[in-house]
Amino acid sequence: MWMVETQGLSKYYTFGSGNQVVALNDVNLTVESGEFVSIMGPSGSGKSTLLNIVGCLDKPTSGDVYIDDAKIDYGNAGSLVQLHRQTMGFVFQGFNLISTMNAMENVWYPMYFNKVPKPERKKRAEELLESVGLRDRALHLPSELSGGEQQRVAIARSLANHPRLILADEPTGNIDSRTGKMIIDLMKKLNKEQGITFIVTTHDKAMANNADRVITITDGEIVD
């Protein structure tokens, strides 16, 4: 069973002048459940676009995406929301957290939308912060945390609803390599211990070295 499968996935941006930007061109990709896949490629090659389409934040121009072998219906907003709530978690490059909420609240926020009862939410948020080593920073606002700490809170948040797939777009992009290593180790650990599937875009060689598989993408096409 594939966790993620794309078939002939393309994304074009057409401008008024008739110019076309090809962000993705006929991408066929399969990711196994439990795999740690890293996507590399030069800037502008379409990494984020691919991740956003798989993550149901963006729509493809053509082609299909299957998650758990079920075709995503991009026109059905309700089903996309359910995927966000139950199947996948996101980590972005930086400024991942809601600035007016403390670490704890940021972690329980996805559970709030997923309608998890309040006491359970609090308990899980505490556990998750514990697991990323930030239990004692629970009441701190994002502005009071370092970049690496913020990313760890973001990872804790992405785990809130027990997702089986985590999509991370350059999670180590804005932090130094030593802190980056910590983030990579954390994700690896979650992948190994909990079997969570990771698709991570990166420019970071260290990240690629830790992946089960590295996919290289150039000008919107996979080049192996």
Binding site: G55, L57, A77, G78, V81, H84, R85, G89, F90, F92, F95, N96, L97, I98, S99, Y109, P110, F113, N114, R157, S158, A160, N161
Partner: peptide, 16 residues
């Protein structure tokens, strides 16, 4: 705006 983007990604619907 950025915060709304994140909020949607973590499972908020339009009505949320």
């Amino acid at each position: 705006t950025h915060e709304i983007g994140i909020t949607k990604a973590i499972g908020a619907s339009e009505s949320d």
